[in-house]
Design a protein around this nucleic acid. Structure first.
Lengths: 140, 140
DNA sequence: TTTGAAAATTGGCCTAA
DNA sequence: TTAGGCCAATTTTCAAA
């Protein structure tokens, strides 16, 4: 990892589909150099993968909620793993702070979110508290 | 937006650099169909863009913190906009729940995070409370 | 780093529903 | 009118030298 790798990474984070030839042109280097560096970063795991940013509301997901979960310490791991299995829950983190588990949940509307939180997740044993924060706007 | 669009989208979310020809092959359709649908979704804004997922710790960012900010109502907007300008703050949301502003901050270590939170952001007028939650592990 | 073949992208034009 | 098929030119990828 040097500055050149970092430059490549920044461009790829900005546009994950940018062609290697174009990156090379902007960085005034060769395409093969760029490609080999990217491959190396992929193999080393610096680059975990590529993804597509979605406008959730245009896709019909009107509600995205950052949702914290509190559990009993002994149920913590099993709850976290159970949450991962739900299709509606897009991200699951363990963290310090108010809630040991933080998630990102996509739902069509408030009704669906409520259904997910209070019905579907009701089957999980050990959840003590659910703290949803609905995202109003992504500024950055 | 129909099922075919959704299938394409799911593949692109899973691998943002997948070639249209490959998507077409897996979906048993033609490359031109895939290409035209993707272009349409880009134009309609369903697809906002493409990015690269980074292993933050391998990049030297040992600490990623979901950080909530509380402000006085009258300072809310200016605080949110100021936060956007910091390079270390990768995401800024306005939200309901405990904190009106939620952010994701990348730092090399605890020392750097502390410096960002309590020195750099000290110049912003109107922040009442800072609530950082350090991410321990991303399970999904 | 350079080179050349294979693969993918792009744009235009056409047909069919 | 819109989605998809087809073709040809260009660009990109990829591996070997």
């Amino acid at each position: 990892m040097d500055n050149k790798d970092m430059d490549i990474l920044n461009m790829l984070m900005d546009d994950g589909r940018m062609a290697f030839t174009e990156i090379a042109k902007k960085l005034k280097t060769s395409e093969s150099s760029v490609r080999k560096r990217v491959k190396k970063m992929e193999e080393e795991g610096v680059i975990k993968g590529y993804t597509t940013n979605i406008n959730t509301s245009k896709l019909g997901y009107g509600v995205v909620a950052l949702t914290g979960f509190d559990t009993n310490p002994e149920d913590f791991l099993s709850v976290a793993q159970s949450l991962c299995e739900f299709e509606e829950i897009k991200k699951v983190y363990t963290s310090t702070g108010d809630h040991m588990i933080m998630t990102e949940i996509w739902a069509k509307d408030g009704k669906e979110l409520s259904e997910i939180l209070f019905n579907k997740l009701g089957t999980i044993k050990g959840i003590k508290k659910i703290c949803p924060a609905i995202i109003l706007e992504q500024l950055k």
